[in-house]
Amino acid sequence: MLALDDVSIVYTTRSGPVQAVSGVTLSLPPGGSLGLVGESGCGKSTLALAALALLPAEARLAGGAVRLDGQDLAALPEAELRKLRWTRMAYVPQSAQNALVPVHSLRRQFRDTAAAHGMRSAEADERAAALLRRVELDAAVLDRFPHELSGGMRQRAMIALALLFGPSLLVADEPTTGLDVIVQRQVIDLLRDLRGEDGLALLFISHDIGVVAELCSHVAVLYAGKVMESGPTATVFSEPDHPYTMGLQRAFPDIRHPERSIVSIAGHPPRLSSPPKGCPFAPRCPFVQPVCRDTTPPLVAVSDARAVACHFVDEAAALRERARDPALWDEAA
């Protein structure tokens, strides 16, 4: 239903252009779920905004196309897009807990949103009550103000609001970041239910691979605005083919194995205002070879479901073996 085809996005800033996203190709089938993971600043939110044709004025789609059910969003007039945005797709922005208007009751916010798209108040109230029940909130919260709700309740109310017009795609940007684990679990369970029972397609953004593993059937690992690896969550995390995924996985603690030491990946992501030549991960990669610094590895399909952007995909199995050694990551610097 959603297809990003070779999408590149550039921000124009005072100090020059910032290549936030370069040549990203992704697709999300109806009812599917795709997780975008990566470090801060790798372009996750920018991609989410692009998927909704909601890029801010200083950002520009420098290449590629975003299609919703085959329709190129760039070709649609703004009025048309605005309608699409609520009826076909919905968005839960990053730090959505604070996105509710603090001085209005939830009822008012549901009604305002409804009115903006020509839904009557009575109908909006009815839908709102049903949706709040759907996200396991009492319909009585409708008359409460955002500050009277806990973070988790606000987050669920935001999701309910996003579902007001029965969209078939939900784009959720870090919806669980900053929530307590138990509340986070509640939000994950809710999203999983929405996906399973209501057939909602989900584009889910997180820097937490644990959350993505619990929620998404497919995952794309982003680094410096590029896809490093994509495929079914189960195989990407059990057999990562890209060194960055291997590192990320080793950096992530697993509560079932307190004895396993976690690693840090030395260095930091490249500056997107002056992207380096070659593989963007090369400066931090423990397996780097001269070719990596010269030539950008293309994202190649390694099986029908998986794609990897690394010169040494063919040796992935051997690299995985070497990546198990924590000392390897500490030495690379």
Partner: peptide, 9 residues
């Protein structure tokens, strides 16, 4: 919150 931007010389 991006380091890369903040770390500019």
């Amino acid at each position: 919150m991006s380091d890369a931007v903040l770390a500019s010389a």
